[in-house]
Design a protein around this nucleic acid. Sequence first.
DNA 1: TCTGGGGTCCTAGGACCC
DNA 2: TCTGGGGTCCTAGGACCC
Length: 404
Amino acid sequence: MKERQILHVDVNNAFLSWTAIQRLKEGETLDIREIPSVIGGDEETRSGIVLAKSMKAKACGIVTGETLYQARKKCNNLQVYPSNYKVYKNYSNALYNLLLQYTDKIERFSIDECFLDMTEYLAGATLLNKAIEINNRVEKELGFTVNVGVAHNKLLAKMASDFEKPNKVHTLYEEEIPKKMWCLPISELFMLGRKTVPKLYNMGIRKIGDLAKFDEKILIKKFGKHGKLMWEYANGIDNSEVQYEPEEPKSIGNSITLPSDIYGKDKINEIVLALTEQVTYRLRKYDLLANVVSVQLRTKDFKDYSHQRKLLISTNSTREIYKVAKEIVEEMYKGDFIRLIGVRTDELCHKGQIQLTLFDNENSKKQEKIDKSIDVLKEKYGYSKITRGTVMNVENIVKAKRKE
DNA sequence: TCTGGGGTCCTAGGACCC
DNA sequence: TCTGGGGTCCTAGGACCC
């Protein structure tokens, strides 16, 4: 088999950089990349966490995911800016379109990361030179910077793009693994998170090199499939392909942290209905039907519960899914104060994939028409304006809660 | 002024059938 | 009277990613 040629392109401080250049474009003179700043959620609605940080904020020890409260304690002149996904999506698309000039085998791994399979697209050039060209062109033409990882598989390309930042190109070829990767702490390895790292520490495994040389069988015994994966990753083994064909979503859900805790089934169900409307709207937009419905509740002391139910008939009807969601709330709600509520649908399929059943009767056809006509209004007037009957949508609930 | 929201994948245990 | 496994489906919960 031919050796694969893979690049991983990772936008430096994506949300913060994109916010910065958008502000400059709109006439602001301050470049927020040059000061201690973060992109954060709204503390009033209890979403106050750091989503992205500038280099100066990073230098203060601020990390992504921590609360804005903690971040301010580390840096007293910290500036906080809100996020804007529409803007981010535009810059993400601009990057994607530039990368398309190099290969059409691009996997959009997230809004700010892409894998490129360059195997068939080098035409005599070296992979490293292509990476350097991309790095330069993005900065010049798009106004933000990226790191580019250069390797022969996705895992090593991703690890490489995570080396020194910003605006850098790094290679991580097989022969470089001991020198460049094995010296790193295991917490740096992709797919080793906060739960697994302490367990490995207790086994005396601290560096990625320790993990690479550890007995694979013992890891498998202790961690199952995850054990095999982490051993392979530590040794730079990854045969996964660049998934350049966008895949159908496997699940669609929405959740919300409430501005204040709520109590009681009726109040929970109001939110569940609003969330169900959002979820089924998205299902219908993609022309998908759900076969499983699940509801998640988080209590005020951060205990998570979730129950799910398999449906007899696939559906994307608001009424049908809400009916099931309500039953789930009924069976699992124990009377706690609730902080977060989520509704999710799984085992999605397309209309054509199911056969009409006896249950596909006149009544359900009528329901389908109602959902469709509401969707049309939502497309026309914007999502938040249209809600069904007596029901408030989540935005209204959030606003109402804020005033309390 | 504590701790988001969108996902994917895996595991363990129970029910049920042969 | 006592004691099996293997396979599949379903559910609850957890780990990880950005």
